[in-house]
Design a protein around this nucleic acid. Structure first.
Lengths: 212, 212
DNA sequence: AACATCATGTTGACATTGTCAACTGATTGC
DNA sequence: GCAATCAGTTGACAATGTCAACATGATGTT
């Protein structure tokens, strides 16, 4: 009935409309615990309108999360490419990552949360690819640093490189979550920026120093 | 008033029964997305029976999570206290932490997840205290290592010590989540134990090396 | 002993949600 | 010209969380 001649076509129009409605809800409530019916109401469509585009809520969240990883990749890629020195690049990456997550709290929480996974913990291919793209930026940075000798990473040893990627990504992930959850409020009176620098310094050390 | 002579009485009886029913559901489904009514059914009581003990599902999850942090604290405390050398202690702590989380997947996911927080992201005092207790073990280890010179941590500088605690805790947290979510499956063919050792080595380096 | 109080659960009702099936209207292909 | 498919709607249903009202047994006071 509201099927106006519709400006933005209809096909992909509703898909994007639903995503935007969901993002608006996330911005308002700082959470992604909205109902699909609420999203439909916001989008001005009926419940069940989503079915042709998103099988269920998880599918919608996956789409939002994948777009988030793309944005994260662009952010850190842009940041890192401005630094010649790999060490400076890693520091910049830490800052950019943390800044992105803190500026997009609910989005980041969604991206790494449990609601984008299926029953057995598997990750949707779409999200998987997007997340890989973001990690790839880090991997290339570490590999470059390994080649130049800036990091104690053997660029020819895939396991060594992978372990380094996991190490950095883990701490970024963990630190960000601690910040987001404000678990840190217990632990410190330090400002976020200062703490981030200190954490980054120790992380960088782990990449520079000789390891057993 | 709670001093009933009754054995397990009813008072705390149902509370514990509900927690155990929830834990059983978590063990079966590997998730904490059960309904309160399902828990009630398992416990053999009527829906709404929980109200006197847990205002809502979040309250039940908080109780479960707090008990989980207590168990985590006991585990790592026991492990660390078996090592004289702080560096060996830190390595042991990493192993114990990861092992705990991987052995209690759904429980750990619950503990650090979003469902134990209130609307504005605040953490329930009960959970807060329990989590602090676990972090305290790490803090004491790092402080000890700082005093003995094993770590490049100034035990008299609260900010330095706090930053070190946050660094380690972040990586433990992040690495564990990556493992749990199997995000890592993309990144490596390495076995968990091997990867854990490599990550721990780099983490330890960050605590040992001089930092800017 | 009698009675009020309160804690602990139960029952019933209601709005919300996700999901399924059936339906409508336009668009497309043959 | 007509069948088929796509995109969205409508209606129905069971499950859930939550609220109010109710039962019931223990406690405590006089």
């Amino acid at each position: 009935m509201l099927t106006t001649n519709s400006p933005p076509s209809r096909s992909q129009g509703l898909r994007q409309t639903l995503i935007e409605a969901a993002l608006a809800l996330m911005a308002e409530t700082n959470s992604w615990s909205f109902s699909l019916r609420e999203v439909a109401r916001r989008a001005g469509v009926s419940h069940n309108a989503h079915i042709r585009h998103f099988a269920d809520k998880a599918a919608l969240l996956v789409a939002i999360g994948a777009a988030g990883y793309d944005a994260l990749r662009d952010t850190i890629d842009c940041t890192v490419s401005q630094e010649e020195d790999p060490v400076a690049g890693l520091r910049a990456l830490v800052r950019a990552f943390v800044k992105f997550a803190l500026s997009n709290r609910s989005r980041y929480g969604l991206m790494v949360g449990k609601d984008v996974r299926d029953a057995d913990g598997g990750i949707a291919p779409e999200l998987h690819r997007a997340a890989d793209g973001a990690r790839q930026v880090l991997k290339e940075l570490l590999e470059r640093g390994g080649r130049t000798g800036a990091f104690t990473i053997d660029p020819n040893d895939p396991d060594d490189l992978s372990a380094a990627v996991v190490t950095v990504w883990s701490m970024l992930h963990g630190y960000t979550l601690l910040e987001l959850d404000r678990l840190r409020q217990i632990e410190t009176l330090i400002e976020t920026d200062d703490l981030t620098e200190r954490v980054a310094a120790r992380l960088v050390n782990g990449m520079i120093a000789e390891h057993a």
